[in-house]
Amino acid sequence: MNHLLPWRVAAWALGVVPLAFAVKWTFQSLLGPNPVEFLEHYTGDWTLRLLLTTLAMTPLRKVTRLSEPIRVRRILGLWTYAFLCLHFSIYLVFDLGLSVAQLGADLVKRTYITLGFSAWLMLLPLAITSTNAWQRRLKRRWVTLHQLIYPAAILGCTHYYWLVKADTREPLIYLAILLALLAFRVQSVGISLRRRREQPPAVRVQIETMSASTSSERP
């Protein structure tokens, strides 16, 4: 149990430290000439960084054969959503002045807003069902539901790419990392399908129950 502690500390730090800096700079008036834009970009950047870190935990477990990455995944996922909610709130309050009509107009007309909002909507049920109780209640459907993180991540990275005016380097870095993480999964799914095909039926059942038990493993 003790060797989980550094992992938990690191996962919390990834959320707490950037948040603490944002609060510190806000109170010190260090956010520059356009503080709202700074905070929008800052919270957006950290949402994507935390999201990609969350998605990196499964490959990390497979590579290191440690279970700790999976056991801090929920902490990372919830911090991702916390930053996403901050990002969305700043836009709602300072860009839209809390106007529902303007939000509607933006959702219809601005593709990058549509993408970002859809990602927020997709991650909402994931945040709600992140508790142990929901995990037990949904059983295997929990795993299926939480695969929504993949489309949400694609939408999130595309949202960033779409709003940049000319210099697309940074959004392309996020997209490249995301594609690498997705490619890892496609590859490992391919390997496990091939293994299944090569196994006699009696063993296949055994493998399926095994994979079901590992994927619903609680942190």
Binding site: N34, G97, D106, R110, L163
Partner: peptide, 18 residues
């Protein structure tokens, strides 16, 4: 409008709300 955003409002440097 710019195709990707509305040009109806703007943020003056030094102000928070558009």
């Amino acid at each position: 409008d710019h195709p990707r955003w509305s040009q109806a409002r703007e943020r003056r440097l030094g102000e928070l709300v558009m």
